[in-house]
């Protein structure tokens, strides 16, 4: 028996919006610790990992580990039927071929019930080791979204150059070129507006904007986004250090005392010169 109740159902809506255009079919792995999902996009260029802790739910019961394979577009269609302030309850029986979604209106006078068919997916799980990255950039998520959107007018790839004084996002194409430079901000009263750079060495790498624009769909989940990267590593070193991680924390919307209840991490390999 599996049951998870989330008063802030809008969090699930935002998570689906952040992954449904990247991944078609995926499995939610449910354990007593929470729900997680790992999937590659259809062209296998990027990897997305979602995690929601059990203590982020208002009620969470998972008697034994379950894998819920589903079409995320179908799930998204159903989740869209919930109002933003609805409580969402996910229920699954043992060995069932479907899950039930309940949307409870705030005044508890209305309950909508939907079922979604499950799929048996032959998921390929990739091991994601804990890696220390040489460069970590924390910045407002809406600024990152804007930069990716603007630069995709210019070219297909963004070149991220990071030095101690700041970070530069640049793109070039047939019509010309463009760049945005962000300086590290001083400690401010509004941490959500800050730009923080932590680096061991300078870095310059290029990434496909098509994917970064997909990742930026997670912007409504978090005021800040973290980009973690490492410079090109010498031959023989594990290649995974070259992968960029774009991370959005998932927080509950408690204005007084917000807490992190999970994350979305997107992994993208750099574009390299042939």
């Amino acid at each position: 028996m599996f049951e998870a109740r989330l008063i802030q159902g809008s969090i699930l809506k935002k998570i689906l919006d952040a992954i449904k255009d990247l991944v078609t079919d995926a499995s939610w792995d449910c354990s007593p610790n929470g729900m997680s999902l790992q999937a590659m996009d259809t062209s296998h260029v990027s990897l997305v990992s979602v995690s929601l802790n059990s203590d982020g739910f208002d009620k969470y019961r998972c008697d034994r580990n379950l894998t819920l394979g589903m079409n995320l577009i179908s799930l998204s269609k159903i989740i869209k039927c919930a109002a933003n302030d609805d409580t969402i309850i996910i229920k699954a029986g043992d060995g069932g071929d479907k899950i039930t979604l309940l949307f409870e209106a705030q005044n508890e006078s209305e309950v909508a019930e939907y079922e979604i068919k499950l799929m048996n997916l032959d998921s390929e799980y990739l091991g994601i080791p804990d890696t220390t990255y040489n460069v970590t950039i924390k910045m407002p998520s809406n600024k990152f979204q804007r930069i990716c959107r603007d630069l995709s007018q210019i070219g297909d790839a963004v070149t991220i150059s990071c030095a101690k004084d700041g970070v530069r996002f640049g793109a070039a194409g047939d019509l010309g070129s463009g760049s945005i430079r962000l300086a590290q901000t001083a400690t401010s009263d509004k941490p959500e507006d800050s730009v923080t750079i932590s680096m061991q060495e300078a870095l310059c790498q290029s990434f496909a904007l098509k994917y970064l624009n997909h990742f930026a769909k997670a912007t409504p989940l978090s005021a800040q986004v973290t980009l973690s990267m490492s410079p090109d590593v010498p031959l023989g070193e594990p290649l995974l250090f070259n992968v960029c991680v774009v991370e959005y924390n998932i927080s509950d919307n408690d204005d007084e005392n917000p807490s992190t209840i999970g994350f979305i991490r997107y992994y993208l390999a750099p574009k390299i010169d042939d």
Binding site: Y125, L126, S206, V243, L268, A269, K271, I272, D273, D274
Partner: peptide, 14 residues
């Protein structure tokens, strides 16, 4: 010309 490898080249299957 720039190219992009599959993410599977970077992470090992579990």
């Amino acid at each position: 010309k720039m190219s992009q490898k599959s993410i599977t080249s970077y992470f090992k299957p579990n």
